[in-house]
Amino acid sequence: MSATVYALPSIVVFVTAAVLIVVGALGVLAVRNPVHAALSLILTLFGVAVAFIAQSADFLAAVQVIVYAGAIVVIFLFVIMFLGVGRSRHDHVEPLVGQRPLAALGVAVTVGGLIALLASSHWVTGATSASGSSLVKGTGNVRQLGTAVFTTYLYAFEATAALLVIAVIGAVVLARRERVTEEAE
């Protein structure tokens, strides 16, 4: 499969998803109001979900919307709204001196690495890929995903789960610091 011919609908879907992703990502950076920035982030996440569906990764698309758009950005918004970050004008005071050049450097290294990876490897996704070809059309790919997660990548999966539990317990411990003196007396 050296030269894949793409049909018009796939091109339309891809362009729509790409525009959503890029516009949303730029919006996150450019918009002043944090709530609007979070909304732009949702736009990006939906674009990524559309791209997933175009690659026949239906389950991933659904989980993308449920977890990221449905839970994580809601928590972002919750914090932004509850702490009222939007109306303060302290953003020209830099808390970490010299973070901007360091951030620029990090971005340059990451993007350079990604481009090098993309240039050096051959990427096949979707129905034409190694795992996709065994898909029965229209059944979704939950079975393959589940098998992969619970056999090949079991340790990574369990490590992630443990990490999340640690994060939750850490947050609870930090937030609920009980008065020790009363317990001791």
């Binding site: 659904a62 919307v65 449920i66 758009a69 449905g70």
Partner: peptide, 11 residues
């Protein structure tokens, strides 16, 4: 993805 659409939309 069927019923997951319901969960996504309620999110």
């Amino acid at each position: 993805m069927g019923i997951l659409v319901m969960l996504a939309m309620s999110g």
